[in-house]
Design a protein around this nucleic acid. Sequence first.
DNA 1: AATATTAATCGTAATATTGCGATATAGTAA
DNA 2: TTACTATATCGCAATATTACGATTAATATT
Lengths: 110, 110
Amino acid sequence: MGLTKTEIFSDKQNQLATALKAIAHPARIAILQQIIAAKACICGDLALELGLAQATISQHLKELKTAGIIKGTIEGVSVCYCINDEVWNTLSKQLSSFFASNEIDAKSCC
Amino acid sequence: MGLTKTEIFSDKQNQLATALKAIAHPARIAILQQIIAAKACICGDLALELGLAQATISQHLKELKTAGIIKGTIEGVSVCYCINDEVWNTLSKQLSSFFASNEIDAKSCC
DNA sequence: AATATTAATCGTAATATTGCGATATAGTAA
DNA sequence: TTACTATATCGCAATATTACGATTAATATT
């Protein structure tokens, strides 16, 4: 087996899981932090900064891009990556409401 | 290779990644939602409710428990799972500040 | 004690992820 | 055109995840 049964879950659940999965890796968290701090937004710089191979960083960037979290604009020979603010803010709100749904007072079991 | 190089990242980055990874699965999101809504907090009930095998739910519960996000209290023959509010709130705050770190105005590149 | 009930663990097969060297692609500069 | 630079993709090996049937362990019930 080994295949997630996405069909039994709601679109919202699947989408949130996919977005979280894209962020749930230390290298990708580090990449996002670097991009946000604007210390580096170019693949090669990130590779040097983080100490991973260029191919590895490129792959992580692709995953973040596929998830819509970042977008890349061609800048001559290199590509400048930055946060996709729309997706970022939407995800931020989704997570906020997900975490807020656990109200401390309203406990009915345990 | 196939082994995440955790040693080159900070503890915070690794911890956040681990916590997010625990949540980043539709079944585990669904389990957390059920527990929060208190419709089901018992393994067997969750298995029936979500349509996954008991062994599968038990495995997902274990992962959430290992991550510290939920805790289980023995209730006769069964175990009642509930949110670990401390961990939940800490993670909520960490994520809030992570997402807030992307200030829309302060763009220095791209 | 014998039986039922519930959850955890084991073992396994299928699939996915991670990381990197090597190579391909595409733009820039000489 | 030729050489250079930067990123993307391919191919591979190692490891991790996912799901489930079967089994085990532990508590109730009769």
